[in-house]
Amino acid sequence: MTGMRRFEGSRVIVTGAARGIGARIAERFVHEGARVVILDWNAEAGRAHAERIGATFIQVDLSDNDATKRAVRAAIEELSGVDVLINNAGMLRFASVLETDPDEWDAMFAVNTRAMLVTTQVAAAAMIAAGQGGAVVNLASMAAKTGGEGQVAYAASKAAVVALTRVAALELGEHGIRVNAMCPGYVLTEMGADTRTPEKVALWSSYSPLGRLGTTDDVAGLALFLASCDGEYFTGQAVNVTGGMVMH
């Protein structure tokens, strides 16, 4: 990454960037010259990470529609506009089809999918008003394409992210706004960490032709590519970051 400044002066909002994949995405954008606002519910971790990388932090509960709108508007005001929106925030809870509580289903969709609609509405409106286009990158999951035992609500919410991405790409393209999704496979972050054993990590690694799990940099690298001029003819795509575990 030495010397790369693809985003010099760009204004970037990243949700769910206090930890994990989002934190690395935010850090990579700052490294490449962007001004970044982090939106997250975790105030302690979010503020600490923002201070560490030179970003701005705004606390928000993304399951609250009105709070989400206010937070995105505040971020846009802080940045004097927005060029890139990275919808990274998400939650993962495990339950089978027969055991899933509908309220848990709703909670998962509220953060994983509905919040992306709300943030996109606010950010895209600002991009359209500015007349300079922009990029939206949504974090979906390998589960959107393959499902996942015990992940019915999560997989369904991430499949909905892919559908939302495609429709947004169709509708916003005329304004020069590109919308894409990323579908990571197994990435070792805090999310779901309590489900991992050395045996499971070894098993999951064996699913990839590359023989390893993903890293936050694997996902962050794709996010920056999709948001950059290098990816300016990509829109409506759901790009796998799975080390070959999924090839469609």
Rank of each mutant, 00 (worst) to 15 (best):
A17F: 03
A110Y: 05
K69H: 06
E78N: 03
S205P: 10
V219E: 07
R24K: 12
A67T: 06
I76E: 05
T195R: 12
S96H: 03
V137C: 00
A227L: 06
V219K: 11
M245D: 04
F57T: 01
G211R: 12
Q121Y: 00
M4Y: 04
L98N: 05
R52D: 12
A223I: 12
I177P: 02
E27Q: 13
A169I: 11
N112K: 03
F234M: 14
N138T: 14
A124E: 11
S206D: 04
A144R: 05
D103Q: 14
I76D: 05
Q132Y: 08
F234G: 03
G236N: 02
T146K: 15
R52S: 14
R35T: 09
M91L: 13
R166N: 05
A75I: 11
N138E: 15
G134E: 04
F29V: 09
K158G: 07
R47E: 10
E78R: 11
V201I: 13
R11I: 13
A160N: 04
S96Y: 07
Y207S: 08
P102A: 10
L203C: 02
Y186Q: 06
V84A: 11
G81V: 06
P198Y: 08
G81Q: 00
G131Y: 05
D230K: 09
I25Y: 01
S157E: 08
R28Y: 01
A115Y: 10
L224T: 06
A110M: 15
A169G: 05
Y186R: 00
L98D: 13
V201S: 05
S205E: 15
L224C: 03
A129C: 07
T56Q: 06
M245F: 11
L222V: 15
V239I: 15
A220F: 10
M247G: 01
S206I: 07
A95M: 06
I86T: 04
S205T: 06
A163N: 14
N180S: 14
R196V: 07
D61K: 14
V97D: 12
E8A: 09
G192Q: 08
G148T: 11
R166W: 00
S96D: 14
E78G: 00
E44S: 14
G192V: 05
G54Y: 08
V37H: 02
L117D: 01
T189E: 00
A125K: 13
R6C: 06
L85T: 10
E32L: 09
G134Q: 09
A160C: 07
R19H: 12
F94L: 14
W204K: 04
G46A: 10
R47C: 08
N65H: 07
M191D: 02
K200T: 06
R52A: 13
A129H: 08
T216S: 06
A126Q: 10
F109W: 08
G173D: 09
A202H: 10
G176A: 09
D106T: 03
G236V: 04
A169Y: 10
H248R: 04
M182I: 14
V84K: 01
A74W: 01
D83S: 01
A18M: 02
V137N: 02
N240R: 09
M247E: 02
G46E: 04
Y233W: 15
A143M: 12
A95I: 06
F29G: 10
I58P: 00
A129R: 15
S205A: 15
V97T: 15
G90I: 09
I38K: 04
R212S: 10
A34T: 08
